[in-house]
Design a protein around this nucleic acid. Structure first.
Length: 671
DNA sequence: TAGCCTCGAGTTCA
DNA sequence: CTCGAGGCTA
């Protein structure tokens, strides 16, 4: 090492190399050598030198990634080589058909394939001259795109200067990739927008597109965009025989390539990878909508050629999209069993994640207006992770003359004036006699509380409309003859239904309590009340303070329970049900079980093979264990079936809760 | 009083 | 399954 201090020029050049090197370690190799703070120190040093010596600033300097002046308009530029698009396949059969075509054209079945996740982002073409990034453009129509160079410079995962070997001098290089917004960044961005009172972006792809098309690149710099590089435009002189080699070459030269690229010797192996990734994709921090499959060999690619700018040597295996666009035709209101008003969206039916969605809940007024959803909008619908579809937000600006959604002032069923308690999200119909409450609680009774076979929601609705059943006692007085008036009930089904209604008189006390529709009393509270008071008489006679002594009941719940029992109509209902023979005293079904698993708490997720979740829970409880619905630090183990819920799994991993298979469960039950 | 845990309530489709 | 909020505990 020379003892002489380096010149300022030398130091600036060294810093540029160093910074570029650390960006490479961080963004491309995902293996940083220095801390963010150390990086910042080097960066600040270079900024200081460049400020003092403006003549030393080079276009590829890491400091040039921010602060380009806002441009008026994006220039259209022609791509040196056109950016083709991919033919898609959606089934294994189509994939096999493609393979047959490939083999027939090539006259050999000796074909190697490379697969990569298909990123749901924006296709970008990057141009490097003499190893330096000079221009980048969006795909556009494939021939001409928009020049977004200043914005691309802000993306740290894009190298400003290639890592060239000694003597390597590619005069012009065209590199293709997909710019995307990581999900973590997308969520953070939306939180920020909402906090600023702005509308959140509907999905990561739109957010990325919006970020890249900012007029002011300083705004783009605020967005944590990233890129995966997946190919080259021209590859003359590239020392690679195929796509796989090219990916390694790109990575070595400073480009961020996706780590999940795989080589496959057979199409069966490709098909397996595609279906495996359909499940695994939720683990990624970015959205993918399929798998890109390429014939590896460049020679074979050349012989296969393209059709209408679509290469015969590549396919996109696309899954059923988890999000879709459709028209929100109308916003309806449903009144629930507690009187809560639930707006829901009637949608033009659309395929999402393999099922047709035609309605979705909109939760409440505040939620609708925060997302700025209006009737007639084109909206994005998603079914992410779980089964239940949600309306994410509008795609386009609103049509003229539309107005923000407003809850009706009166109940659509009974006309009562709607109230919205301060600080609560829900609007409510305050009328305790509102038909919605009676009907919905009857439905709750037949499907949840008493679980009556042969009488479902639809039958209850029709019985209600005919005026045959307007209350629980009515249900227990229903005759076979009356039931047979209903469409769909013959002699046999009516007999069976009446029999199961009669049998449901035997449901234990706590289920009856749950079915009474007492506000704030669900499954668990009903059990606690039954255990504590043992008979309905004692419960009904209890003061608010006495009720509060039961487990899990605080002042709020105690108040609403006491209030419910103070109502004459409710006391009368209990009397009637008592006379009809329903159980209002605790049996021995709630006796605490002492067993080998006492003190253990389990959560079950996914579908088990040998038993239903209820059966598994019952067997665990019979051994003294507790089974709850959400994972926490107190959970002894998470039992995992087929297609487990992602949120429970993630939480269990984070809290280091043991994961148990169905086999482990069987072992556990055996003792 | 904060933060964790648990519960209630509402939810879609095949 | 998720959300919001009540109840419990450190």
């Amino acid at each position: 090492m020379s003892s002489k201090a380096p010149t300022v020029e030398q130091r600036a050049a060294d810093l540029r190399d160093l910074l570029e090197h650390h960006l490479y370690r961080y963004h491309v190799l995902d293996d940083p050598e220095i801390s963010d703070a150390e990086y910042d120190r080097l960066y600040d040093e270079l900024v200081a030198i460049e400020e003092a010596n403006p003549q030393l600033v080079t276009p590829d300097s890491p400091t040039q990634r921010v602060g380009a002046p806002p441009s008026e308009k994006f220039q259209k530029v022609e791509h040196p080589t056109p950016m083709g698009s991919l033919e898609k396949v959606t089934t294994d059969e189509a994939l096999e058909k493609w393979q047959e075509d490939v083999c027939k054209r090539l006259g050999t079945s000796d074909v190697v394939y490379v697969t990569e996740p298909k990123i749901d982002g924006l296709s970008i073409n990057l141009i490097y001259e003499d190893g330096v990034f000079v221009r980048g453009a969006t795909r556009g129509d494939g021939y001409r795109g928009e020049d977004v160079t200043p914005n691309l410079r802000t993306i740290k995962a894009i190298s400003m200067r290639m890592r060239l070997d000694e003597g390597e001098t590619p005069s012009l290089l065209e590199v293709r990739g997909e710019v995307y917004l990581p999900l973590s960044g997308f969520n953070a961005l939306n939180e920020r927008l909402v906090a600023q009172g702005k509308k959140p972006t509907p999905n990561p792809r739109n957010a990325a597109a919006g970020s890249l098309r900012q007029k002011d690149s300083a705004v783009t710099a605020q967005r944590p965009l990233s890129i995966w590089i997946h190919g080259l435009g021209m590859r003359e002189g590239l020392p690679a025989e195929g796509h796989w080699d090219a990916l390694q070459w790109l990575r070595a030269h400073g480009f961020r390539t996706n780590p999940y690229a795989e080589r496959h010797e057979s199409i069966a192996s490709v098909a397996k990878a595609c279906s495996a990734w359909e499940k695994k994709r939720i683990e990624l921090d970015y959205e993918i909508d399929g798998i890109v499959i390429k014939v590896d060999s460049f020679d074979q690619q050349r012989r296969l050629g393209a059709l209408h700018e679509r290469p015969r040597w590549a396919r996109a295996y696309k899954w059923a999209p988890m999000t879709a666009q459709t028209k929100l035709e109308k916003i309806h209101i449903r009144v629930g069993r507690t009187g809560a008003l639930n707006p829901w969206a009637q949608l033009e039916p659309v395929e999402v994640g393999g099922v047709t969605v035609s309605q979705a809940t909109l939760h409440n007024e505040e939620d609708i207006n925060r997302k700025d959803i209006r009737e007639g909008d084109e909206v994005i619908v998603q079914r992410a992770g779980d089964v239940i579809p949600q309306v994410v937000g509008p795609v386009l600006p609103h049509k003229r003359g539309t107005r923000p959604f407003k809850m009706p002032a009166n109940c659509p069923l009974c006309g009562a004036e709607i109230v919205k308690p301060e600080g609560e999200a829900m609007h409510r119909c305050p009328n305790k006699a509102c038909p919605s409450r009676g009907l919905e609680s009857l439905i709750n009774w037949v499907q949840a509380a008493a679980d009556i076979e042969g009488v479902g929601e639809q039958s209850v609705r029709r019985l209600w409309d005919l005026g045959l059943v307007r209350s629980l006692p009515d249900l227990y007085r229903l005759t076979k003859e009356q039931l047979m008036e209903l469409e769909g009930y013959g002699e046999i089904s009516a007999t069976n239904a009446v029999e199961s209604i009669r049998a449901s008189k035997e449901v234990p006390f706590h289920r009856v309590l749950f079915g009474l529709n007492i506000p704030d009393v669900g499954w668990v509270t009903a059990q606690n009340l039954a255990r504590h008071f043992e008979t309905v008489d004692r419960l009904a006679a209890a003061t608010q303070e006495e009720i509060q002594e039961a487990e899990g009941i605080g002042p709020d719940r105690a108040e609403s329970i006491a209030e419910w029992f103070a109502d004459d109509a409710n006391r009368q209902l209990i009397d009637e049900l008592c006379k009809l023979g329903l159980r209002f005293e605790i049996g021995d079904e709630l006796k605490p079980v002492e067993g080998p698993l006492t003190g253990n708490t389990y959560v079950i997720t996914g579908t088990l093979e040998a038993f239903t979740r209820d059966e598994a829970a019952a067997q665990l409880e019979a051994k003294g264990a507790k089974v709850v619905n959400s994972v926490s630090g107190k959970t002894t183990g998470l039992i995992i079936g087929e297609e487990p819920g992602n949120s429970k799994l993630t939480k269990a991993r984070k809290l280091e809760v043991p994961l148990l298979t169905e086999e482990d469960l069987v072992q556990l039950l055996r003792g």
